[in-house]
């Protein structure tokens, strides 16, 4: 497995694999998201307490999961970039960070829209909301740092160090905030005694979660590919300019 991952680090091989995988993953993402969202928004039953408001869940929960998942992916990519100096890991980590920030923003906004009718307020300084907000700030810091240097390589390494430091601190921040204040409901899917959510809601939720995961893969691959192309254009332009000069 590690050998396979290292072989992926070659841009040419990566592009070949990415081109082969991309159409399949795109179709899968579209089908999962399409079925999951239609099922969740139209055919799944309304909640006995929250009514139709509960349908926000089918967007909110997957987005919130992806928010943390993206950070984990980004931190792993950053660590492998620092350890093995794979350029592609740097590209991928930087491509993952805006995607993660978007998922985090979606989770925050849909959370606010869900909070208004159910809790009666757009925003409360509750533990989960606050730690997701802090996660959003960490993404912003990562993006700002990786773009703050004239030398791209330098920005990538600095951002990679920041991502690793953030990954160590994230659990500490999460648990301190949780200790500080809690109103958000606890976990209802991943529990030792099985999910406390009915199957009629669990299935569309699982579909949208998988769909969001596939969407992340698609976006990540497209972003890495376009970044590779952008670099190639830059090299070609430089070669052309020096050829004329």
């Amino acid at each position: 497995m590690p050998n396979f991952l290292h072989s992926l680090a070659s841009p040419a091989r990566f592009q070949r694999i990415a081109n082969a995988v991309l159409p399949w993953v795109s179709v899968l993402a579209a089908v999962l998201l399409g079925v999951g969202i239609v099922w969740g928004l139209v055919f799944s039953p309304p909640d006995y307490q929250q009514g139709d408001t509960v349908r926000v869940m089918y967007i909110h929960v997957p987005a919130a999961w992806m928010a943390t998942f993206c950070y984990a992916v980004m931190a792993l990519l950053s660590a492998s970039f620092l350890i093995w100096k794979h350029q592609l890991a740097d590209l991928a980590a930087r491509a993952a960070s805006p995607i993660g920030a978007c998922f985090t923003a979606i989770a925050l906004i849909t959370g606010a829209l869900w909070g208004k009718p159910t809790w009666g307020t757009w925003w409360v300084w509750d533990a989960r909301l606050t730690s997701v907000l802090v996660l959003f700030f960490l993404y912003l810091g990562h993006m700002a740092l990786s773009a703050a240097f004239d030398d791209r390589e330098r920005g990538g390494r600095a951002a990679a160090i920041l991502a690793c430091v953030g990954a160590i601190n994230l659990p500490i921040i999460k648990y301190s905030v949780e200790w500080w204040n809690t109103l958000h409901q606890g976990a209802s899917v991943f529990r030792m005694d099985g999910p406390t959510i009915d199957n009629s809601m669990l299935w569309p939720l699982l579909l949208t979660v998988l769909g969001f995961n596939m969407l992340f893969v698609v976006l990540l691959l497209v972003r890495i590919k376009s970044e590779l192309l952008a670099r190639r254009i830059e090299v070609l332009q430089r070669a052309r300019a020096s050829g004329r000069g």
């Binding site: 700030f137 810091g141 700002a144 921040i173 301190s176």
Partner: peptide
């Protein structure tokens, strides 16, 4: 500020 203030939260 953007980088370190979130880390100061705990």
């Amino acid at each position: 500020g953007l980088l370190v203030l979130p880390l100061f939260l705990p």
